[in-house]
Design a protein around this nucleic acid. Sequence first.
DNA 1: GTGCTTATTGTAACTTATTACAATAAAAAG
DNA 2: CTTTTTATTGTAATAAGTTACAATAAGCAC
Lengths: 143, 143
Amino acid sequence: MTCSATHVTEQIRARGFRLTQPRMAILNVLYEAGGHLTPTEIFEHLHPKLPHVSEPTIYRNLDFLRLNGFVRATPTGNGRLEYEIVGHPHHHLRCQDCGTEIEIEHSLLQPLYERLEQSTGYRLTETHHTFLGYCPRCKPKGE
Amino acid sequence: MTCSATHVTEQIRARGFRLTQPRMAILNVLYEAGGHLTPTEIFEHLHPKLPHVSEPTIYRNLDFLRLNGFVRATPTGNGRLEYEIVGHPHHHLRCQDCGTEIEIEHSLLQPLYERLEQSTGYRLTETHHTFLGYCPRCKPKGE
DNA sequence: GTGCTTATTGTAACTTATTACAATAAAAAG
DNA sequence: CTTTTTATTGTAATAAGTTACAATAAGCAC
Ligand SMILES: [Mn+2]
Ligand SMILES: [Mn+2]
Ligand SMILES: [Zn+2]
Ligand SMILES: [Zn+2]
């Protein structure tokens, strides 16, 4: 288990929640994957080793981990949600044609966030966004 | 039916697709609502008058209308999708605490889009985003 | 109008996601 | 280690969304 994984489990205990076997297993799958996973993918990863862990437990724990700020839910292209460990602040830019996806550093959005805070009076949370477009290779076709 | 609704139906015909009763009814519900609706809400709007229209037809037509650029799908807070007529370019900013939602003009995102196009080489599509934060009234609690 | 073509639909079966509630096991106390 | 407490789980039922395929009706030619 990585250093930050240990930090998360300590935090869960510190906040008075329980470190259950399914909960830790879900966190481990997400850490090992290192990217976005759907609830069904997580279920399939766990099932061979922990066949008793049920779907509702996956969904409930993903929600629990999200509400506690340990994972993030991000809508995939077709309406489903994918989950990932909250780590470095980033966003995505996906090619509508070939699907190629690159990461955007959150620092690039910082000026926008400040402008939005000024013009609306809201305090903005760092939300996770996926932008769409055409990559350099597909761009000619896209126009 | 509004002027732009007529434009949409003409476009559908012009592109070789059929103007079916369910398809027009779904468009009308979205036009009359004037905002975001879930597939289930659309189904419930239609059911009293057109009880034979089925759920798969709702989903298929929403997908059809989206792929043809007439409606937009936008993820609601809890992973579901909401649909709206594609009209003026806008985004949303929702308070995580009280749910109050305000619209953001797309022009405010234009500088970001240009910066992203320069730094990535992608050509960006105008994607619909929902930002989260705390509104002026909830902000004190949020900090 | 009648008949033809085929995009679109409804039905049925299935997958994915959510809810209610009794059973379980994690944490803490004795 | 044993008991107590209750957060968390599994089961069963339900809701939301998708797929396969035969039946239908929108558009067109006559
Ligand atoms: Mn991500
Ligand atoms: Mn909108
Ligand atoms: Zn591409
Ligand atoms: Zn608020």
